[in-house]
């Protein structure tokens, strides 16, 4: 009650979704009502909404991976590009035509044999109608490079030959 006096309803709603305060029976009624609406919404689901849902699902997945502190070798640019093409429900050939890439170049990108340049990242942004910005693709690529750098033991071994002296640090206990 004290809170009600201290803050306006707008301020409360800006900060919280408080407990609904309904009885069990009232909540059951609320659940039935929203289920009816949900059923109607599913009936009205058209191809545009399905496509948008696929784009947002992919964007969210990419954003979560970019934001997380975890590295996963699976989540490469190629992985997300495959997901993107699959979300569009179109052939690779048709997709390569839509973004003016040669089939073989798309294939190299999809199999992690080639890194995309800025032009390709921007073409992907334009193709997705800005729903997945170029910067999101770029950050995925950056994280992929980080993973590769962290895990490249072979390069570490070969580069040792070029370092003539290492800094002598106090041995760790």
């Amino acid at each position: 009650m004290k809170k009600q006096n201290k803050y306006t309803n707008k301020e409360l709603a800006q900060a919280h979704v408080p407990p609904h305060g309904l009885t069990e029976k009232q909540k059951e009624e609320a659940d039935k009502q929203i289920w009816e609406i949900r059923k109607k919404s599913l009936e009205e689901l058209d191809s545009d909404k399905i496509l948008l849902s696929q784009m947002m699902r992919l964007k969210f997945k990419m954003s979560l991976y970019i934001a997380s502190n975890n590295y996963d070798e699976i989540y490469t640019f190629s992985y997300f590009l495959k997901e993107y093409v699959s979300s569009l429900n179109m052939t690779k050939h048709a997709f390569s035509k839509e973004i003016s890439l040669h089939n073989s170049q798309l294939s190299r990108l999809l199999h992690n044999k080639e890194e995309p340049n800025k032009n390709i990242l921007i073409r992907l942004e334009i193709h997705s109608n800005k729903s997945i910005p170029a910067i999101t693709w770029f950050k995925i690529l950056e994280k992929q490079r980080e993973v590769e750098l962290i895990n490249d033991t072979k390069l570490r071994e070969s580069e040792k030959a070029f370092v003539k002296r290492t800094v002598q640090l106090v041995p760790k206990r």
Binding site: Q26, A30, Q33, I34, E36, I37, R38, S41, L45, S53
Partner: peptide, 9 residues
């Protein structure tokens, strides 16, 4: 949405 409010696609 009855006693609820909702957000769709």
């Amino acid at each position: 949405g009855g006693k609820s409010v909702y957000s769709d696609t």
